[in-house]
Design a protein around this nucleic acid. Structure first.
Lengths: 343, 343
DNA sequence: TTGAAAGCGCTAACAA
DNA sequence: TTGTTAGCGCTTTCAA
């Protein structure tokens, strides 16, 4: 049974305690932990058993100070958006935590402040509290990546640098255009020819990317997109209204939506008219939220491979933090289509 | 404009750099930061401007080593459960991050490992990587709290110590019994008298707690609960089946469910029979998931005040980490009922 | 009110 | 293969 606390000081055991118990110097204990191959077998065994007996783990603060590394990855975790079906961020964080663990890192969450997107980053960089960041909100005009790059703070972005073609930082992203295409091809394969799009406003790069997949798939089959697209806010009621207008003016037999929230809006309009998704009109959403699985009829949705995103992000991070740094190729992943009742 | 990096070493500025620039000793700079009242006004101002000019922030590792504190709160973040409407944990984490910030703490997330509920805790305790933990899964038989208490590791639980009446650790919880009662009273006030319960299996303390509110409300009005309760797994299909059986055998006009997932199961059964929640049968869920807001008809649900939970948890934590520790009273918070179309 | 000395626990560099 | 020395950057004595 390990002792865990030093009898005299009441603090956790230190290298010195282990060294004394094992009858070696502190450095030898350090080597046993960090470069075990340097030790003779019997010395190593003696140190090991002293470590076990005392329940010793190296003090993080001391190790961090000495090695100038914290083994912490910083991630800004913005307040949740209520009323939206999306919980992409949460799903991603789960994956990131799991994956980071395997690479020997923990995830440090910090709060932003609504106004300033840089808030939080600055202090963590200057106090060297984290080794690197994962940056998730790479929307147009977001200054974080440029700022971090200028500071020389290591980071990997989940999301392309939309507004900056010659950004040199590592990033991982999911191809929304492919997602839009998968959704649309799926509907085309089911015989639909008038497939409407409900997406976000034109200044959303992500929305336009997804939309391009929809448009491309239709054009590839010689079909027109004319009058079949709507661009609105990402809310239930916007989706509902857009669906009503499209049904009246363009008679689509199917909808592809830039989000599950918008798809839920379509559901409402269908219900208003005594129609049902899947039976009367096909509906496909985006991001495979929990709602998609639970709602009736269950919603076909484009799913981002967040587990894989996390793996790539951590791989890029590990490369970045290597000595010397190893560049990780920018990675574009393909989403999958989860087919359910609504199509 | 701050310089941020030492010209010579390429590392962030240290106390010594600030001291040199300000023409004082390192200790004076330290005092300026930690005990500014000790300094003369003009010295303080001189140090301040040197700090600003260099963009200095104290190195965390060094400070942590010296003060034996990390200002980090550890939270185990288990993998997300797919197919469930619940994202309570995620909502709580958001609140915790925000609240911790105000108290000067960051949140460190760590992964569990499916089998061992203690996994992750041990290493963080021994390496003094976090100052305290927030423990969230306090279900029956969970050894975490006992283990942490034995280790002398500070922690606050979100959740009562169900299985251990004389546990002495601080905790914060939401009264599920009150929630069940609110839901039921709401339905009673609307004229319902046959109100069914769909909850979790009997070994779920949380489920039984919520159920007791339902039963109590009915009994208080002299109504019987006989034949009106069902206890099942927390899945959509279980809720669906339970609702079908109850409708056939007990003719309830309303359902109170232990989760939104179960409520969605009820929705399915209603749809199967051409019925609609709110119009034909009232339905109330629990935990106010995103699904509740987005589904049609929108779902009335009992909502936990997670923002307030986070505030109390952090208050308890701050007390615990005080020198000397200040006990924070165990806190039981009341949920609220978010009334929507389904009732 | 300010400064000097010591040391938190660890590891890199070097010496034995 | 093991031990010695030094120092990461900070704060806590204590002395000036």
């Amino acid at each position: 049974m390990a002792r865990h606390l030093n009898r005299v000081t009441g603090t956790p055991p230190t290298l010195a305690d282990v060294a004394e118990l094992a009858g070696v110097s502190r450095q030898t204990v350090s080597n046993a932990l960090n470069n075990p191959s340097l030790l003779r077998h019997d010395t190593l065994a003696r140190v090991q058993s002293a470590v076990d007996e005392l329940g010793y783990s190296p003090n993080r603060a001391a190790r961090n100070l000495r090695t100038r590394a914290s083994h912490l990855i910083g991630l800004r975790f913005p307040p949740a958006q209520e009323g939206t079906a999306n919980a992409l961020m949460d799903r991603f964080v789960h994956s990131l935590v799991e994956t980071s663990k395997e690479a020997g890192y923990h995830v440090l969450l910090f709060a932003g402040d609504g106004g300033d997107p840089l808030a939080g980053y600055d202090d963590l960089v200057r106090s060297t509290a984290v080794d690197a960041f994962v940056v998730t909100d790479t929307y147009l005009g977001n200054p974080q990546t440029a700022w971090l790059e200028e500071r020389g703070a290591p980071f990997v972005a989940f999301g392309r640098p939309w507004d900056n073609g010659d950004a040199t930082h590592p990033w991982v992203d999911v191809d929304g255009s492919v997602g839009g295409r998968m959704a649309t091809d799926h509907l085309l394969d089911r015989g639909h020819t008038r497939i409407a799009w409900i997406g976000w406003r034109k200044d959303s790069f992500i929305g336009e990317d997804r939309r391009s997949g929809w448009a491309g798939a239709l054009h590839d089959r010689g079909l027109s997109t004319k009058g079949l697209a709507s661009r609105v806010e990402d809310t239930l009621s916007s989706g509902r209204e857009a669906a009503a207008v499209l049904l009246d003016e363009a008679q689509p037999s199917a909808f592809v939506c830039a989000s599950d929230t918008l798809a839920m809006g379509v559901y409402r309009t269908l219900a208003d008219r005594g129609l049902e998704a899947g039976r009367d009109i096909a509906v496909v959403g985006f991001d495979d939220s929990q709602v998609a699985q639970v709602v009736h009829p269950s919603l076909t949705s484009v799913r981002q491979p967040l587990e894989q995103v996390a793996v790539e992000v951590v791989a890029a991070l590990s490369g970045l933090l290597n000595h010397p740094p190893v560049a990780h190729p920018r990675t574009m992943l393909a989403p999958t289509l989860v087919v359910r009742q609504s199509s």
